[in-house]
Design a protein around this nucleic acid. Structure first.
Lengths: 348, 348
DNA sequence: TTGAAAGCGATACCAG
DNA sequence: CTGGTATCGCTTTCAA
């Protein structure tokens, strides 16, 4: 700080940081001198160090970073998050997490942030542990997380799918196929049907499955009639492929249950390709209620994606005093559209 | 650094930063001690300060930050950018730029980054000047920028639209309406047709307009027959509204020219709503070639969005030695689909 | 290999 | 309202 233009460094600092601490004319004199000398203002890194605030919140992506920009639900969530960040003049630092465990930990350790938003990191992922080691505030979307330090903005996943499941059973469906992504990272695509809750390494998905299971129980139906297909990725194409597998079986299900609308849209594509009518020949139900769901007439569970992101951001940037306030439950709603209808009778 | 577990700070530093500088067993001893003491590793901010590297590149958004996640072209561009960032173990810091000029400058000054990517900041915007004052590398998409310090990954915008314009004039169109966003920030929506290149504060859009103008000149047509509509936002809805205005005139154009596919899709919506057939009653041409363009049968100019982002990132993170290498021109291609066809004859 | 000392660039506190 | 001073936490010579 060679700005010894007559005044001392503290005065220069004040000129930038607190304009009210010195005469406007002096401030102007300093600022113009700075301009002349090519001084760009306080170095943000040094400021951060001194202030103990990085001015950014970190969002980790274990998938390719570009996932953030691909999935409609992720996009809405990030929109909300960015809204909160904006309000606190904070940036969003998108952090790509490498596959290599050691590199993943390093990525977390090296992030200059004031807190983390754990958006889509499987339980047991090395980055996950590293995050908590940082000792910074962490927010996620899993209300039921056992990680006590974690704040959360989430929904009651099980309750949501319990309602959705009741809708299906009331319509007479009992032999259905669940199509979902990310049930377990180690699972191969399509070929490994899974049955146990323990196989699922994302809490949200696990709860959703539990909800359906409870609905089946409540209706006195046999959960053994429900098949599950794990697809590689949360995409329409993956949904199409997964649904195709189910529909082409001799004994095809009367309904397809997707854990996201994107996948459900793919399932609708699969129906269309086979001349099957959604809600008549085969029912389809999704999750999220992304904008395209309405256009497609998809029955789904609506969750407030943007609001979820916004609240997550607020939780992180302005933590409530009490522990209870740090887990916020958001409402969900079953939106019934044309893609679900009575199970076709006859052979079953 | 109270880690006086027997060794000194430099040794601890080495334990993390250069494992080869000390015995593996000592390193392990240090690391486990750190774990025990709850030391999360070197503070990233302090490290940045010392090393002079922030480990992030800043991407500015003058629009709502969420624009980043909304527009398909922006999404693809950011995908590419994140790819390059990933390769250099660098994060992406998304910076929302406030409307207030002073706050905007502050946002730029406070960003702890190693460089900026100017994605969508109008000429003359206060943030723009502030960026260059930082003295950091800057990359944009405007090949013809007069800002000498700016690297660029871009396309020859004028050449692209010259080709598109030639396609239209060859089909016999001469009375067309251009629908575009961001022609000028101060312009009101729809109601202020603009005619002059100088009214446009984005170089890319200006060049696109010039290209069409040149195509008209070359075909010996009267540019005065071309109308322009400025719409508020790069969205399908805005495109629909803009196109509606044009189509509902008594003397409607034979073709609609959009400066983005998103707007062009909105224009197709407007046609549909009026029972007009694209490519028969009215031709529509877009720009970008986003995935939805193919589905919609939209004639458009393809530009490599993701590659543009990737190269921009590489330019920033690994600048070529020569000044020439710092402006990279990417190819474009006219993709002719069903939305353009011969101008309907009759009354014109 | 390991340790001591010198900053990186700023800010907060406390006298003047 | 202004100016010294200590310090934020680390990395990097350079010597031992």
């Amino acid at each position: 700080m060679a700005d010894e233009v007559g005044v001392s460094r503290s005065t220069v600092s004040n000129a930038y940081g607190r304009p009210d601490q010195l005469s406007p004319e002096l401030r102007e004199r300093i600022l113009s001198a700075a301009r002349r000398l090519g001084y760009a203002g306080p170095n943000p890194t040094a400021r951060s160090l001194r202030r103990g605030r990085a001015g950014a919140i970190g969002v980790l992506f274990t998938d390719e970073l570009s996932y953030a920009f691909k999935d409609p639900f992720a996009v809405r969530f990030l929109q909300g998050l960015s809204l909160a960040a904006e309000r606190h003049s904070t940036g969003l630092l998108l952090i790509p997490v490498p596959d290599d465990p050691e590199a993943a930990r390093a990525a977390v350790r090296n992030a200059a942030v004031d807190g983390f938003c754990v958006f889509c990191v499987a339980e047991g992922h090395p980055a996950r542990q590293a995050i908590f080691e940082r000792g910074l505030p962490v927010v996620g979307t899993e209300l039921l997380s056992t990680e006590a330090e974690m704040f959360a903005a989430g929904i009651d996943e099980a309750a949501a799918t319990r309602t959705a499941g009741a809708h299906l059973t009331a319509l007479g469906h009992h032999r259905v196929t669940i199509v979902a992504d990310m049930l377990h990272p180690a699972l191969g695509p399509l070929d490994q049907p899974i049955r146990s809750l323990e196989d699922i390494s994302y809490q949200g998905e696990r709860e959703r499955l539990r909800g359906y299971q409870e609905a089946w129980d409540k209706a006195g139906l046999d959960w053994g009639e429900v098949e599950m297909i794990n697809v590689p990725g949360n995409s329409r194409e993956a949904g199409l492929a997964g649904a195709a597998t189910a529909l082409d079986r001799r004994d095809r299900p009367t309904a397809l249950v997707a854990f996201s609308d994107v996948i459900a849209l793919g399932a609708l594509d699969a129906l269309r390709a086979r001349g099957l009518r959604p809600g008549r020949d085969v029912s389809v139900i999704g999750f999220d209620d992304i904008p395209q769901a309405a256009e497609a007439g998809l029955t789904t569970v609506r969750q407030p994606a943007k609001e979820k992101g916004r609240i997550a951001g607020e939780l992180l940037l302005d933590p409530p005093a009490t522990a209870e306030g740090r887990r916020v439950a958001l409402p969900t709603e079953l939106i019934v559209r044309a893609s679900t209808g009575p199970a076709p009778d006859g052979r079953n």
